[in-house]
């Protein structure tokens, strides 16, 4: 019994610590910028998905915004589900995600002001270099998936309700494999990087965003991009401002300023160029307004 009490106390402590954490976060991180007058509330909390974070785009472009305006952007990254949930719990000022259905739900439930798609890229199917299921000439991802299923080739699924997982499920449609029966279908429930390592280990196919694959390519020697840019593989990213009428403590001014900047020509140019230096190709395409 004593043991149980101790455990419960520990849980209670964790909760109270977590509660304190929220307020502490807002007071820290005041920018040291001298050229620009700091805004009243200089901290912007952005909740985004791991794949956006892993691509390295944000650290490449956000400092430009921060220098210009004196804001400080705190980027929290998690799976799409958790990223949205954090915002619903009032722990973010805006979200940057890539899952249309969840985004629309977020706005329709009143948590978000408006869904603004601003850039896209393509999911790619990576797989063993010898392409055992023979998908490289397929017209689109759906056809490739059908071949993988027919051949019973191994396929690693995110299985974590992330934006990438939802995109995968949409491509499978009615033909979604059942992991309980189809042993070739590996539902990993982990992040993009971990799933790619697993595909590399198990000689499996995997649906991934191009950015994460290219940035990890060195450790994925067994894998190649087998199929890219089918019309059903488009991956659109949006920003949504959290609704201050529904959520307390949202830094609306900051969120608006950041969204305006992301949609500006200056940011567009930075996004369109991102990746050229490191990977020899741009990773995102800006959506023209």
């Amino acid at each position: 019994m004593k043991k149980l009490l101790v455990i419960l106390m520990a849980i209670a402590m964790v909760f109270s610590l977590a509660a304190c954490g929220g307020t502490a976060e807002e007071t820290t991180g005041a920018p040291e910028e001298t050229t620009v007058k700091a805004p009243e509330n200089p901290t912007i909390r952005m909740s985004t998905t791991t794949s956006v974070n892993d691509s390295g785009l944000l650290p490449a472009i956000l400092p430009v915004f921060e220098q210009k305006t004196g804001y400080k952007v705190e980027v929290q990254s998690a799976g799409t589900g958790a990223a949205i949930q954090k915002a619903k719990d009032g722990n973010a000022d805006l979200i940057l995600v890539h899952s249309k259905a969840s985004e629309e739900e977020f706005v329709n439930e009143g948590y978000g002001v408006e869904r603004i798609p601003f850039m896209f890229n393509y999911f790619v199917i990576v797989g063993p270099k010898d392409d055992p299921a023979g998908i490289k000439d397929c017209e689109n991802a759906a056809a490739a998936f059908a071949k993988i299923k027919g051949a019973g080739s191994k396929f690693v699924s995110r299985g974590d309700e992330s934006g990438t997982h939802k995109a995968e499920l949409k491509i499978w449609g009615e033909d979604k494999p059942d992991a309980a029966v189809d042993t070739w279908y590996i539902s990993a429930g982990q992040g993009m990087g971990a799933c790619l390592s697993m595909a590399n280990e198990q000689n499996a196919y995997c649906l991934t965003d191009k950015a994460t694959f290219l940035s990890n390519k060195d450790s994925l020697q067994g894998l190649d991009i087998i199929l890219g840019e089918g019309e059903d593989m488009k991956n659109t990213y949006s920003v949504i401002e959290c609704n201050p009428e529904k959520l307390d403590g949202v830094n609306t001014e900051g969120a608006k300023a950041l969204i305006d900047w992301i949609l500006s020509e200056e940011a567009d140019a930075l996004i369109a160029k991102y990746g050229e230096a490191e990977y020899g190709q741009a990773l995102f395409t800006v959506i023209a307004e």
Binding site: A78, G81, A83
Partner: peptide
Amino acid sequence: AILLETNKGK
């Protein structure tokens, strides 16, 4: 499994 559900936001 707990970690996964946390990442899902559940």
